[in-house]
Design a protein around this nucleic acid. Structure first.
Lengths: 132, 132
DNA sequence: CATTTACAGACTTAATATATCTATAATATC
DNA sequence: GATATTATAGATATATTAAGTCTGTAAATG
């Protein structure tokens, strides 16, 4: 069990966008180059963040991506969920009459992790803390 | 990102063994049947628990598997680590001079989850609570 | 000695992650 | 309006991992 590289790309890209201008979009070319990933692939990942409403894209010359929400609203969990999906990490599909106690424990554990990811915001790591 | 089915098999098997006799071993045939998995495949999974020192196997007629530790010593995390490995869920292999702040946050989150899994013992779910 | 059981390793199949490629649509600039 | 620039979509390809099978071997029982 591992977080995907796509999640890593998404997180790093978002951090860059938080530090960048909220007006002037940043091209995928530039975003990709600094992470050593191909622009087309990164673009595909970022499209999911667009659909999740976290960033917006501007096509055409001088286009690119920029935040669509306030920095403070963006949590780690938002980004991870947009890329990895929101389903539970552990799913017990056995049919043992009663509910599965093991699954209950696993879900509790996952919630501990999610709580931390939900309460940590990207802006907390940003260089450019114009917030507060 | 998902926990593997193998982890689910391992957890359920361990719970059965906790409820079973600490002396008389339970055959993989029986353990597999109740989970709807093939005996050879389950056997392969259980071998990893043997190597991790959590259970022991008895070959030959009337053989099988039984716990090698006290019930109380076995945590969820032990089992999960034996199957999934112990490496971090998130690994940032970019070289951005400094340490990766994103990775730090991810690691903290993982530790929250692990803490819960480490403090929850299999015996807590067992039917046969001869402990305490 | 024959039967029962776990173990080991090679192999297969299926699912998912990680891309790449090509064509299309939208926009700015000249 | 023409052209260059940029994101988007969809098909396809490759690599990695998970999930499972098969066969033979070793150990213990009776």
């Amino acid at each position: 069990m591992k977080f995907s590289k796509a999640t890593n790309y998404a997180l790093h890209t978002m951090l860059m966008l938080v530090d960048a201008s909220p007006i002037k979009p940043v091209g995928v070319q530039q975003l990709a180059e600094s992470q050593g990933v191909s622009p087309t692939y990164l673009s595909k990942i970022l499209t999911r963040l667009v659909k999740a409403g976290m960033i917006e894209s501007v096509t055409g010359a001088n286009g690119g991506y920029r935040l669509s929400r306030k920095k403070d609203d963006i949590t780690f969990l938002d980004i991870i969920h947009a890329i990895e999906g929101t389903s539970s990490l552990f799913e017990c599909d056995f049919l043992h009459g009663e509910e599965c106690l093991i699954q209950t424990v696993m879900k509790e554990a996952e919630e501990k992790m999610e709580w931390h990811l939900k309460t940590t915001k990207l802006a907390d790591l940003a260089q450019n803390k114009t917030t507060v």
